[in-house]
Amino acid sequence: MAGHTESVSKAELWDGGGSPFRVSYGKLMMWLFLVSDALTFGGLLVAYGFFRHRYPDWPVGEKVFNSMPGLGDGYPLLYVALMTFILIVSSVTMVLAVEAGHRLDKKGVIKWLAFTVIGGFFFVGSQAWEWYHFIHGGGGVITTMTGEVYHSNTDLHMDAAGHYHIPPDGLELVQNKYGEGEIVVIDPSEYPGIFDNMADYYTGASMLRNEYAATSNTSDQEYVKAAPQFGNAFFFITGFHGFHVFSGVVINIIILLQVVRGKFDDLGHYEMVEKTGLYWHFVDLVWVFVFTFFYLV
């Protein structure tokens, strides 16, 4: 912490007998691990950036991620912002736990570490909901034998007899049979003809395709099918990050139990809390970048 680095001459620092960085072996190794992990995330994010420029048909974050649990659509980015806030707050409680550890305040460490674990669970839970919503989607895409593409704002549930329900929100033609994007609201009397002519129907997102519309470079009205790489990048980047959060929560729980059992009272310092704290802050740090590059830009 601030002001703890005492002034030592260079010769003395590098003279052996101790770390020239004046940090413990474990802490230095945690830092080196974080650097290598940051390289992995950097690779994933740059692959994302590459896809995004390579494929012009890329969806807009605030149009895809605009739902709140129990409230429906119309809240662009609010849920992701909430997740970001939860993770930042859990990072703050972690740094408070580290600070309490430096004062050998066992009760403080337990309190703040417990809050951090709760925040981590909230984040992992939010991400699970986000995945569920992304995979299942809200609407659907119909392609026909003659090459038209229709978009429905609600899912067309198939009944046992193999019939699709007519969507209450109606259907829109989004791409005509010449492959040009145009938006035409379809009269319900034409629905049966479209369903008979249907070649394929899909909703939500998978690794192969997704229903999310991409932005056109020319006009906001034009509909473009999104590149499947959009779904792939979402699953890989948020999935890899979510796995990190989950591991972080597990590690935090283990350390919390060790604190409660008094392991660090015997040692005389709480450096283990600081080391797990480094990992936890790193998870928050990665999310800051994922949030910007995946959702905002």
């Binding site: 912490m1 601030a2 002001g3 005492e6 101790g18 004046r22 430096h102 004062r103 310092h269």
Partner: peptide, 21 residues
């Protein structure tokens, strides 16, 4: 033993803690 001394060097008192918080 050296590692432990690095860890203990990070300790601070309540007053310093208030500044950090």
């Amino acid at each position: 033993i050296v590692d432990e001394s690095y860890a203990r060097a990070a300790h601070h008192d309540e007053e310093h803690g208030r500044k950090i918080r």
